[in-house]
Simulated assay, not measured.
Amino acid sequence: MSSLVGWNSDAQTLLNHILQSPDHGLKFAIIENEFGDVGVDDGVLKRTSEDQIIEMMNGCVCCTVRSDLVKVLKELPTSKFDAVIVETTGLADPAPVAQTFFVEEDIQKLYRLDGIVTVVDAVHAIQHLDEKKPEGVENESVEQVAFADRILLNKIDLVDEAQLVGVETRVRGINGQAQIERTTHSKIDPNKLINIQAFSLERVVDMDPEFLDTDGEHQHDERVSSVSFKMEIEVNVNKLQQFVSTLISDHGADLFRYKGLLAVKGMDQKFLFQGVHMLFQGAFYDTLWKPNETRDCRFVFIGRNLDRAKLEKGFLDCKTPDVLRFAVGDAIMANVEGGFKKGTILKQWDEGNPYRVKLSDGIEVWAPEDDDAYIKRYA
């Protein structure tokens, strides 16, 4: 068995690309390690029926958590898989992950560490690599680049050539031996990442003489934490997008990574949002809520100086009301271009909007919220 270790904010996109690629013909076991106590990725990874996903909710595959990774690896039915992918968060120190495959005798017998892959965000890489940490706290971003055997320089479509060259120069200054591949949406031939036999214990020990010291200290930045929620609610996606827009505008620099899988009222598709700092993406995707599946909302934020109460209130404010104010057929006034116009309610919860309205001139519009600012009773 070979093992591919990858992390960073774009790793999920890379994983989906690998899992859906017909080129490798491999069956995978995916070990997902979330920084927080609510899992999101298992609901969005597009695995085949033969792939298996295991979630570990510890956030850092290191220190005492290493024993959890060892336990999962030992319990995997290795005869059913060709390769194991360990996907960690962007806050993980890669050394203890790799260390697991060399200091545990039972793991050594079952697995071979094939390579470490790091996805580098071309937009935000420099600020994270140059971030000043408190004394004694290591910079995980630097560690990730240093330990990598393959580096994907991602989001190259969002920066110019001069910035790309600058990031590559900074990365090569940390790790001059790793092969760098430029990518957009983490798309790459999986054969460049799998069965590459790229990990060199000799190189790593030369770089970090204490690599095999299992008693070594590992100190996190105490300002950095995760906030996660799982709520059995449905949300108004219009309110959600407004909330997230305000959040990243005010606190984007401190939001390292955030993602969520949501149940939107009036929609059968699941809504996925994810972002890094000021870059936010949210859309419905092609997975439907099953008839007997609990429609809930899951959110995970990783960042600095997070305010849990404020985040929780923001999401609860997006919850849909149990009953709308207007019924189908009611005469209302809708706020459209040019001011309020008379109309009639055609449908409730249409395409994620509380109301679909037919105006007196025959034009149909949506009311994004059940609020007098958008729609009010006809008097």
Rank of each mutant, 00 (worst) to 15 (best):
K132P: 05
V117L: 13
K74G: 13
I116Y: 07
I53H: 08
R112C: 06
A98Y: 04
A95P: 00
H128Q: 15
V65Q: 13
V145T: 02
Q99E: 13
T78R: 13
T118S: 14
S67M: 14
Y111T: 04
A98R: 04
L113V: 02
I85M: 04
V145R: 10
T100M: 03
A125E: 10
P94W: 02
D93T: 05
E135Y: 11
Q99H: 01
E105D: 14
M56T: 09
D130N: 14
K80N: 09
T88R: 00
D82P: 01
D121G: 09
D68E: 14
Q99L: 00
M57G: 03
V65G: 07
C63A: 10
E135W: 09
N139W: 06
K132E: 13
E87L: 06
S79Y: 06
E143D: 10
K71V: 03
V137F: 12
P134D: 10
F101M: 03
A83T: 05
Q144S: 10
V86A: 02
A125K: 07
V119P: 05
S141K: 08
C62H: 06
A98M: 11
L73S: 08
I54L: 13
F81Y: 15
M57E: 11
N139P: 09
K109G: 02
A83P: 00
I107V: 13
V117M: 06
I107Y: 03
E55P: 09
T118R: 06
E143I: 09
M57R: 14
V117D: 01
V123T: 08
V70T: 15
Q144H: 10
K133R: 14
A83G: 05
I85D: 05
Q99D: 04
K132I: 13
K133C: 08
S67I: 11
C60W: 06
H128V: 08
C63G: 09
V72P: 09
F101D: 03
E140C: 10
Q108R: 15
